[in-house]
Amino acid sequence: MDFTFTEEQQAAVEAARAVFGGVVPDAVPSPALTAGAVAEDFDRALWARLADADLLSLLLDAKYGGAGLDAIALCLVLRESAKVLARVPLLESSAAAATVQAYGGERLKAELLARTGRGEVVLSVAANGRTGHDPAELAVTARRDGAAWLLDGVQTAVPWAQNADFILVPAHTDADRTVLALVPRVHEGVGLGEQISTTGERLGELRLESTRIDARDVIDADGAWEWLRELLATGTCALALGLGEGVLGMTSAYAGRREQFGFPIATFQAVAVQAADRYIDLRAMEATLWQAAWRISAGSTEGAGGPLPVSGDVAVAKIWASEGVRRVVQTAQHLHGGFGADVEYPLHRYHAWAKQLELSLGPAAAHEEALGDLLAAHPLG
């Protein structure tokens, strides 16, 4: 079996490297010991360059100006973005647009997708990589009211909510179903509270009070929320992998030039063993990421690749990403010595982003329990 990436996927990586090559991770002030956000908005200039490189429309069909690629291509680009801590809502906007394309109505797709691919409309999602599978756990409820849906609830920690044009909100209905409502940021019954993430970026507390959304802007299709949830989680794993690779590269460069007793510390066995362990973590993160991305790209949450649902592969990827990114950054801080504790050194920003990714993915133990339940329900062999 050929596991190499396709020419189109490799072209997306090359385009991403060209765009992100000019991003300097330490150009943004450190979030440590400060009360406010590092910036009021995301990097609009970088967003425009991503649009010019057709990287905002990777998952969209050609009729919407896209490349028609899959989740693997998106994860490849997200991996490159995380190496430089790119401050853009690439995952959220791409995942929301792909969900609208796969499950939304024709009117919604025609009005939204091409503009999103050009970067004119920015989307976010009121969910994260650790959101559970039970619809009753969702913070927002929805009830039908004629030709509209009424939304109520408070969703915290919505990424880029202050700057997105629309937020795709999963909501629990009386029929024990999940719908996805496309909520304008400025709309009657919509409120946004200020929150700050571990990274120092702005988050939004989305407050919905009998917010009326036209039924044509609500996705009520089987599998839509499940597909979006798994894509967001897998994309978050891709961000963790890219960040970890960036940190390990930074650590290798430092260990190669930092000398003790007349020798680079990279030549010491204790240092080499720790770096090797973290390299193994990254390779495990990578292997499980591509398995999950491939299952999502297969187009079904069940059956493709075996009896275990795609959520099982995503759970494995989250286990490795959540634990792995933490171990990589902790080792980096240890091997950097005093620089590892310096909040003005670029490694500190990577640590803050790694912690935010770990929190977004949730604890590995919870994913191990979920995986155990799936294995019990879908016995192998």
Rank of each mutant, 00 (worst) to 15 (best):
A240F: 03
W320H: 12
A233V: 12
E245H: 14
V271I: 11
A292F: 03
A276E: 15
K318G: 01
G191A: 09
Q291F: 10
E188S: 15
I280C: 14
S252D: 14
G189F: 00
G306C: 08
I213K: 06
Y254V: 02
G262L: 01
D277A: 11
T251N: 05
A221S: 12
I319L: 11
R258F: 11
A298N: 04
W320Q: 08
A238R: 09
T198F: 14
A272P: 01
L282A: 04
R207W: 01
A276C: 15
I196F: 07
E259K: 05
E302P: 04
E245Y: 13
D217N: 08
Q260E: 13
L228A: 06
R283Q: 13
P307I: 09
A240K: 01
C237W: 02
L241Y: 01
F263N: 14
G204I: 03
M285W: 01
G299S: 12
A238T: 08
I265C: 00
Q291Y: 12
G189A: 04
G235T: 07
E286H: 10
G193Y: 01
I319G: 01
V247P: 01
R295H: 09
L282R: 00
F268I: 02
C237M: 04
E194L: 13
A292S: 06
R207H: 06
P309A: 12
Q274S: 09
S252L: 11
K318T: 06
G242N: 05
L248N: 10
E205D: 02
A276Q: 13
W294E: 10
E302A: 12
G306L: 10
L231D: 04
E302M: 13
E245P: 11
G246H: 00
L192D: 09
E245V: 07
Q195R: 06
P309N: 11
E245I: 08
R283D: 14
S210C: 09
A221F: 12
A266F: 07
G242D: 03
E194H: 14
D313N: 10
A215V: 13
F268N: 04
I196W: 12
D217G: 06
I265S: 00
G191D: 06
A304W: 08
L243Q: 06
G235N: 08
L208K: 05
R216C: 15
L289T: 00
W294L: 07
L243A: 11
C237R: 08
A215C: 06
I213W: 03
A272R: 01
A298T: 08
G305S: 10
